[in-house]
Structure formats: structure tokens, C-alpha cells
Amino acid sequence: MTHFWMVGTDTDVGKTFCTVLMMRTLQLQKQRKVTVFKPVQTGQIYVNGEASYYDTSMYKRFSLIPLELHDLNSYSFKTPASPHLAARLENAHIDCQKLQHTLQELTTRYEQIICEGAGGLFVPLNEQLDCLIDVIQASSWPVVLVTKTGLGTINHTMLSFEALISRGIQVKGIMFNSYTDCEMENDNIATILRMTAIHTKELPYAIVPKVAGEEAIPTISLAESSLIKEMTR
């Protein structure tokens, strides 16, 4: 069973939204014991007066099976900033070796783990400048790349894709988020698939429509996408 990372071309591309969709789809497809793990999250929020974090709150809210809360995250910091800075502000240190140990421990209890990154690939995690891509590489897990469909996405996607393959990290596929079905978006998607195919076979992908809010998550189905067929075969 393949454990894998969900990583974004940048912050705010919809990684958590797409991670939740992937989680629900895989839970439903094979009735698997699937969990999500967010190694590092930043930016404390308040919901009905209670302190929380957006990412893990979304997992709990939309999971189709009960989740073990202590398995969802290792490091949480209040300031919405790069992890290395958010940790420094709380006199804390993100230990990348500890993250690797946690990943390995989780594999003994779950059939499939979806590990959501923080920010982009080169976001620094600590003062030693260990970056997210270093943790991904050390894990030897493949990646699903989350990107947007609008202006600028070709450059951002290809930079991230090239960085991953240069490290020997397998890219399992792409999720194109916030799709509105216009000519530019369709061309962007087609161009990215052609450009990535120069380096590897044509990548499986899923297209996620732009929606008004999180409440639409249960209405979105990715089951017929080539990406989900690849992830569940």
C-alpha cells in the first residue's frame, strides 16, 4: 500500500482542501484505514471561541471514519508564518528525525497515510534550514503535487516538478485545484501535462472545481479521475 505526500506549488494553493478530498475518496473507495498526518502546522484559529488549527480541524470534520487525534500532527505553532520562524517565536525546534520516526510508527497502524506538507517544497522547518523537500526525500514516499489552474501555474508547477525529480522523488500525479473551465485553464492543464511528460510518462491527474466553500466537499467526486484510479489500483 502506498503512503504518500500531498505537497503544493506554494502556500494557499488549496493543499488542505485537496488533501481532505483525497482522504475521503480513498476511505470510500476501498474502505481502507486511511489517516492524514500534518507534520507541522502554523496559524492558530478560533472556532466558537475555541483555539484550533485549520488543517487538522478539516481532517476531523470531513473524515468518513473516526480519526485518532494524536496521530494527526506533531508540531503546531500559533503564528501563521514559515515553520522555522513560528517555532522560533515559541522557543521550539522542529526535529526532522523525530518526524521520520513518527512516519514509520504510523505505518505500523494504518493501511495508508496521506502526509500533507506545509507551504511549498523549500519552506524551512528549522534554523538548520532543513526544508520540507528534505523530509520528503528522506521518507522515500512519493508525492501528489497540488497546483492551481490560473495564470502563473505553469511556471510554479514545473519548478516544483523539476525540484522533485532532481531529488529522485516520485511524482504520482497532479491535482489541479480551483478549476472554472475557461480556455486559459484548459490550456494550462494541457501544457503542464505535455511538459511533465518530457521527463516521465504522462502523469495521472484530477481536476478539482472551484467552489464557494468547504461545505461543498461532500459533493465533489474524484473517483473517475486518472489520479484516483492510479492511487487505488
Results as ranks from 00 to 15, higher is better:
Leu103Tyr: 00
Ile174His: 01
His3Thr: 02
Gly49Asp: 10
Lys33Glu: 14
Pro124Asn: 10
Phe122Gly: 11
Thr79Asn: 11
Ile165Arg: 10
Ser140Phe: 11
Ser226Pro: 04
Ala223Pro: 00
Leu227Lys: 00
Thr219Met: 10
Thr180Met: 13
Gln27Arg: 08
Tyr59Lys: 02
Ser178Thr: 11
Arg24Asp: 04
Arg61Pro: 07
Val144Tyr: 01
Asn188Ser: 01
Tyr54Lys: 14
Ser225Asp: 00
Glu215Leu: 10
Glu105Gly: 13
Ile165Asp: 09
Ser166Gln: 15
Ile154Gln: 05
Glu90Cys: 05
Lys78Gly: 02
Leu164Lys: 07
Ile165Pro: 02
Glu105Asn: 14
Thr191Trp: 03
Met175Asp: 05
Gly168Met: 02
Gly152Ser: 04
Arg61Asp: 10
Phe62Val: 09
Glu68Leu: 12
Val143Cys: 03
Leu203Lys: 02
Thr16Glu: 02
Gln100Cys: 02
Met6Trp: 04
Gln128Asn: 14
His101Asn: 14
Pro209Glu: 04
Leu132Ile: 08
Asp10Asn: 12
Leu103Ala: 01
Pro83Arg: 05
Arg233Pro: 04
Leu106Pro: 02
Asp134Pro: 08
Asp10Ala: 11
Ser57Cys: 10
His101Leu: 14
Ser57Leu: 09
Lys229Ser: 09
Val135Lys: 02
Ala223Arg: 09
Met22Ala: 14
Phe17Ala: 01
Ile207Asn: 00
His101Thr: 10
Asp71Ile: 03
Met6Cys: 12
Met1Val: 15
Leu129Phe: 13
Arg32Cys: 13
Thr11Tyr: 05
Thr219Asp: 11
Gln100Trp: 01
Lys38Met: 06
Asp55His: 01
Met1Thr: 14
Arg32Met: 15
Gly49Ile: 08
Arg233His: 14
Thr232Met: 00
Leu85Arg: 11
Ser221Pro: 04
Asn177Val: 06
Asp71Pro: 00
Ile192Val: 11
Met23Asn: 09
Gln41Tyr: 03
Gln128Val: 08
Tyr54Asn: 13
Ile45Leu: 07
Ile189Glu: 03
Thr9Val: 13
Thr25Ser: 15
Met1Tyr: 07
Leu64Val: 07
Thr79Leu: 10
Ser221Met: 03
Thr9Leu: 06
Gly173Glu: 09
His93Gly: 08
Gly43His: 02
Ile136Ala: 03
Asp130Met: 10
Thr219Cys: 06
Glu214Ile: 13
Asp10Leu: 00
Thr153Gly: 05
Lys201Tyr: 04
Leu227Asp: 01
Arg32Pro: 01
Tyr53Asp: 07
Asn177Trp: 08
Arg32Trp: 14
Ile136Asn: 03
Ile94Asn: 01
Tyr179Trp: 09
Tyr205Lys: 05
Ile207Leu: 05
Glu230Leu: 08
Asn126Thr: 08
Ala92Val: 07
Thr19Asn: 10
Leu151Met: 13
Lys98Leu: 12
Asp134Val: 03
